[in-house]
Amino acid sequence: MAELPGQFWSGWVLVLTLASLAGLVWLVFSLYFDGDQKTQDAGPIWDGNLREGEHPAPLWWFWLIFISLVISVIYLMLYPGLGAFSGALKWSQGGELHERLDRFSMEFGSTRRLVSEAKLETLREDARLMASAQRIYDRNCAVCHGYDAMGQADLFPNLRDADWQWGGDAAQIEQSIRHGRQAVMIGWLPVIGEQAVNQLTDYVLALGRGNAASHPGAQAYKSYCSACHGADGFGNVQLGAPNLTDGVSLYGSTREAIHQSIAEGRNGMMPAFGDRLDDTQIRLLVAWLSREGDDRQ
């Protein structure tokens, strides 16, 4: 529905518009057809050589403004313009969008529904659909996870490796996209002190290298970290606690980075896209991101 002015303002707009247009028409007609075109008085001469020319205004110009005025009036009959008169076509910009959306569903609706219900393998085999999937990725995901999906900025995870903090099977990926993720690791420095943080940093580095056995930090790890990251450091995808033994570390693998993670904590956050993407788009993204496995056998 078009937004239309109230009664008073509607009349105001209507009257002033039509009256002033009539004034313009009068000006043009009077200047062209007052029967006085030829008899021009000589007029003054300004500044030595400035004079008014005596040529009548050209007729084609009359037609130019006449036609544009006629088009204007027709347009104002068809479309909203003259106050609360919404035009013969009952057009509104919201209505036009609805029409376009209806046409969109007629044209693409069935294909898109098929896609949203298709097996992931089938989708993966269709190069054109995967191209569409990549377009969806580029528009929504790439500025964080990188245009190559390899992650970036020591903050946004690589989506091309096997290391998925929140789980890499199709259902888990869909969950991540649809509802987002919020990691909660507290900063341990105020809790356990600098010495313990240092010890844990060394232990985590050793875990990553695979030689943590009989490391002096094991006791502290067991007390503070194992609840989330697991007794052996394999992590927990339910909590988004990453695997500490695979040598892959989102926030950087240097001693400083790991020290910072333990001391200050990490709160990695993935926004929810359930409101921004429809089922078809999410399905395509899941197919494009996951390599194998399907939850809808």
């Binding site: 313009l24 000006l27 043009v28 050209p58």
Partner: peptide, 28 residues
């Protein structure tokens, strides 16, 4: 409207066209 006719040393071609040009311009 000042410098062109001044420099070309010619009168403004059509006075009536100037009138309608000015008022229709100012209005629309």
């Amino acid at each position: 409207y000042y410098f062109l006719p001044k420099h070309a040393d010619r009168p403004i071609w059509s006075y009536r066209l100037s009138i309608v040009a000015f008022w229709a311009f100012t209005y629309s």
